[in-house]
Write a protein that binds this DNA or RNA. Sequence first.
DNA 1: TCCCAGCGGGG
DNA 2: GTGTACGCTGGGA
Length: 803
Amino acid sequence: MKTKFFLLDADYITEKKKTFIRLWGKTEEGKNIVVFVKEEPYFYVLPKNSKQAKEEILALLKEKKKEIKNISLVKRTWMGEEREFLKITCLLPQDPPKIRDIVKTLEAKRGGSGSVIEEYEYALNFYRRFLIDHQIDGNCWLEVEGEEVTTKYKVDLAIKADRVIVLDEIHLPPLKILAFDLETYEQAGEKEIVMASFYTQDKQTVLTNQKANYPDWVKVVNGEKELLKGIIKTINEINPDIIVTFYGDAFDFQVLNKRCKAHKVKLIISRDNKETKFARRARVSSARLNGVVHIDLFHFISNILAPNLQTEVLSLDAVSAELLGDKKLEVDYQEMLEAWRKGKNLAKLAEYCLKDAFLTYRLADIILPQIFEIARTVGQILFDVSRMTYGQLVEWYLSRKAHEENIIIPNQPKYEDIIKRRQATYIGGFVKEPKAGLHENIAVLDFRSLYPSLIVSFNISPETLNCPCCQDDGYQVPGLNYWFCKQKEGFIPHVLRNLIEKRAEIKKQLKKMDKSSLAYRVFNNRQYALKVIANATYGYFGFAGSKWYCKECAESCTAFGRFWIKKTIAAAEEAGFEVIYADTDSLFLKTKKGDIEKEATVFLEEINRKFPGILELDLQGFYVRGIFIPRGAAPGTAKKRYALLDKKGELLIRGLETVRRDWCQLAKELQRQVLEYVLKDRDIEKAKKYVREVVKHIRQKEVPLSALILYEELTRPLETYKQLSPHVMAARKLKESRGEVGEGMLVMFVITKGPGSISERATPVELVNSINEIDTEYYVYHQIVPAALRILQVLGVKKEDLV
DNA sequence: TCCCAGCGGGG
DNA sequence: GTGTACGCTGGGA
């Protein structure tokens, strides 16, 4: 029987020493399907002498009583050369690393006979390896041939298949997408779930255990345990293919899991009836529901989209404002606590909760198609791809390409090597420090994909570095004793060149397409996916955890980059521009003679004729005014900081927004206001006056106490702190007064007047009776003045001008 | 100056 | 172990 379906998720199970890949998906008719495919794990051994190595390996495995399926001799490319490898096929997915541990004892460097030099690809994740080997384009249409089997899974169809064929179709099957959000109430670090919202195309509902008068889309249950059961039941009834959350990995699913454990409720949402698992990852674990894809949009926004977003704050509120033009319902934290405590305004909270799910759903509308295309490009599944950083996307893309070209995938560095690699620094991009202060009529130019262009143009790759064939006439790296091969294209330039060409081809086709068509949207996302990978390749060379790490390659990219941007700066100055700031691949220009727009356009045309290969300078935009703050000009100016005002009156802010919760509300708002006065009103005096006003208000205690609260979290048990920072001291006082203080508690405190350090005077807000107890000078000198000076210092404003 | 610890996202 | 991994900043010592 032949069946066609769209792949959504992949994992594996082991049954009686046999391993099956599970492919979860959806048929064209909308049936949920699972396909089992038998697969065997394997890895490679690079032998010094293959006959001897094979004999010794077999003897050793016999001695250790370790079973394998077989050993065969294969040819693979390694560091640009074809070599003979032993391919060891194993029985179970966990075997390759274990058997590798035995085989490695034969290496000479580990005191063995030396018949084995090294082992490869023993730590590749099993289902990811499967996708690579079968050239499956991540989430794509597949055709399988096999027979139907019965399972206890929540699916309409289960098939045991022997053949998987990849189909080239762009449409999506009917998918049910659910956005979901929780509200919790925290006391002494202990969180309880009090509300949940669900948003799908045809069902929007809120569930809560807090009694009040609600609209009819809110359902009230009795107690938290019933609420948990209700949440699970609601999700299972909706039976979504994809669940989207905003920060669900680190918050919603974590809390849900914890509270389910506390009430002994089983958190089963998966299609194989297994409890929700948390796949361990770098900083947060990911909630994985077998057969149902959980996408936490925050990862993709923070890992991939952030550099291209205006906002530096990645909250649901700020991201929605930018991408959707919509915002969260306004409810501040104090107001929310009050509502839960006193049962006040709960209908508003229900609306707030549903709005969050609604925004998440709408963000998914935009973001999911992008992730789908990246998944197809990289060749891995949605769940993983949606959580990858740039480096990981590049790595899996290269792994897939390596397999296509019979190239061995290099090993991941060991932890000690990562540490060592981190110490090996090299010179980065060229930065011409900005001329501090305000500038008018600015043109911003930048190189189109500078580093990918350089990698392709100068054949920058680990195997082409200092090749013996081009000692005298290779691509010489400016200022370094390296060269790259001119004879043979390296693996990475080869992959990148194809990628850039493919993208150019897609962009050409896009011009002919109807913008409202499905094909247009799909191909536009595809060219974006290719761009994402191309632009990340340089960083990947220099990333310490990278499999294709090559410090010399990364160093050469920046060296070529510096060479060309300096040349461009010189040319711009020659052409009569003032270069007010330049960083790596961008230049900020002013002109004294004539119109900046005309001048810059002419300059662009001229300079682009002179560049080699595919190097090209683009116009990023024109700006009416900008403020530039050099490194070290004010506290907290480690990275690039500037703000530009465009012709439409929109502000483009980089590196200035500070929204840490250890800053009080008043300071955060003040900084934004100062920036607007300076850029929009062009009035430094007004900004100064405004700051002095705020200082006066604080000193006269004319500000609400709530604007002065600092929020900091107790991340560990109170007793374990060596360093008695302000929030720790405040928490101690809280414990004295009411006894309950728990790990994970958000300490809300203010700095009160009196003797001692800031810490000693940090007081829980609930122990403060009036604004008169506040240490106004702390707020003036540690909050307001630094926030203002961060911007105003470069305009010649001094502390004394503000207080 | 160095070191410790929190932030970020969520609520 | 379906591995792991940040970079910056404020405050105390």
